[in-house]
């Protein structure tokens, strides 16, 4: 199905590309948001990546590689958005307030807040490796292929990112809570 749409889109079929974009758009949005930690920037990155994909589709040699190929464009678009946001954006994030999420049985609100801050402090290239490895569940060679980097580079980025987030959690664990500081 996907292959057929890619083949038609490569021939300039806009309708097929529309169907393709609808098929892969949600996954792209999920990836871009988790790399950029900002919904507006993520939407911009996905839009950039999809339009680039349309323009470059005739250069795609293997239609079965469409999604990895698109993801590489998406990551580059995320890098560009991240750099642009450093110059433009007031990056204020509203934490989710409306009820529990699927992750709530694992994460406390404090954990989520600390990890989110830790993620934001990571370089965007390290965030990308984390997302592809932990969120998409890809192996490191697959991550390296998807990002267009050597496996060793993917491994070291994952190592530094994981270490940074572990230190965030450990520092948090060592910090007494406000309630503990208050006298009984």
């Amino acid at each position: 199905m996907l292959r057929a749409l890619v083949d038609r889109a490569r021939q300039g079929d806009e309708e097929a590309f529309g169907a393709l974009a609808r098929t892969v758009g949600d996954r792209c949005m999920a990836i871009a948001y988790r790399i950029l930690r900002d919904a507006d920037l993520a939407e911009d990155a996905v839009q950039t990546a999809l339009v680039s994909a349309w323009k470059e589709l005739p250069t795609l040699r293997d239609p079965d590689r469409f999604e990895p190929w698109l993801h590489r464009m998406l990551v580059h678009a995320c890098y560009a958005e991240a750099r642009r946001s450093r110059r433009w954006a007031t990056n204020v994030r509203a934490l989710p307030l409306d009820g529990a999420t699927a992750a709530d049985d694992v994460l406390t609100v404090n954990d989520r807040d600390q990890l989110d801050r830790g993620l934001r402090r990571l370089p965007v290239d390290q965030r990308a490796v984390l997302v592809f490895h932990h969120y998409l569940g890809l192996t490191l060679p697959e991550v390296a292929d998807r990002l267009g980097i050597p496996v060793g580079t993917a491994k070291s980025r994952l190592h530094y990112a994981s270490a940074a987030l572990r230190s965030v959690l450990e520092a948090d664990a060592r910090t007494p809570s406000l309630s503990q500081e208050r006298p009984a």
Binding site: G25, A30, Y33, E43, L115, V131, S162
Partner: peptide, 24 residues
């Protein structure tokens, strides 16, 4: 820690808004 990282990465939007698709 890896389980926590995976859990926090689950948070967030998973749908591309129609207006973005229309714009594309």
């Amino acid at each position: 820690p890896d389980r926590l990282i995976r859990a926090v990465l689950e948070d967030g939007p998973n749908v591309l808004p129609d207006r973005v698709l229309d714009s594309v």
